[in-house]
């Protein structure tokens, strides 16, 4: 079944076609959401919300772009909204607050704690990365997540974000520079370089 045929059936509220659409695109939605939320449960919540929204408003999809582009846009918007809504509920982990153990963080096992090369544990690396990504501007963060979590090309990112390819290049360059700055500053502070 082609994408067009699938979408026609979904627009006709065909449940089987919708199930197929979910199966084909759930990892795309989930991976993008986890890039923003860094939490499996929250990413699954957003994935559900995205597909419910898809079911209820598929009529508004005009087919001018690929369904994946439309889903990426929905996921980015809903993840940002989810973060805004839950800012007070979730503990936004600050690197400075070392003792603040948030159970919502990805449970990455510290298998290499004894490795002398690693001054930080995996959990701390996870926190550091989350902090650094969250500190990026919304546009830098979106372009970085689409590029690194979903391996989207500059052209695809430009289509999702509705900007030019050169803008994507510039956003990604600044995003990486800022990430590097935040992370290196953190390592220098913690390891007393």
């Amino acid at each position: 079944m082609t994408e067009k045929e699938l979408l026609i059936k979904v627009k006709q509220k065909n449940q089987k076609a919708f199930t197929l659409l979910v199966e084909q695109h759930k990892s795309l939605v989930f991976n993008t959401a986890i890039g923003f939320l860094h939490n499996k449960v929250n990413a699954e919540d957003v994935t559900q919300e995205v597909f419910i929204k898809t079911w209820t408003s598929i009529e508004s999809f005009r087919g001018e772009s690929k369904i994946s582009t439309w889903l990426y846009r929905l996921t980015v918007n809903m993840s940002i909204n989810y973060l805004k809504k839950n800012t007070n509920k979730n503990n936004i982990i600050s690197i400075d607050k070392k003792n603040n153990e948030n159970s919502a963080m990805l449970d990455i096992e510290d298998k290499n704690q004894n490795n002398s090369d690693k001054l930080l544990t995996n959990k701390e690396h996870s926190k550091a990365l989350k902090y650094a990504i969250d500190s990026l501007s919304q546009r830098q963060r979106t372009s970085f997540i689409l590029n690194k979590y979903e391996n989207l090309s500059y052209k695809d990112i430009a289509e999702v974000m509705e900007i030019s390819i050169s803008s994507v290049e510039s956003l990604l360059h600044r995003a990486k520079k800022n990430l590097q700055k935040k992370l290196l500053n953190y390592y220098k502070k913690t390891a007393s370089f």
């Binding site: 759930k26 990892s27 989930f30 991976n31 986890i34 890039g35 860094h38 499996k40 990413a43 699954e44 994935t47 990805l106 990455i108 090369d117 690693k118 001054l119 930080l120 995996n122 690396h125 996870s126 550091a128 990365l129 650094a132 690194k148 979590y149 590097q180 992370l183 290196l184 390592y187 220098k188 390891a191 370089f193």
Partner: peptide, 21 residues
């Protein structure tokens, strides 16, 4: 050391990407 730290932090992206749904 700084590079190894940075590489370890950035490798978390690959771990997150491979989270089982």
């Amino acid at each position: 050391i700084l590079y190894n730290q940075l590489a370890n932090s950035l490798s978390v992206i690959d771990i997150e990407k491979n989270t089982d749904i």
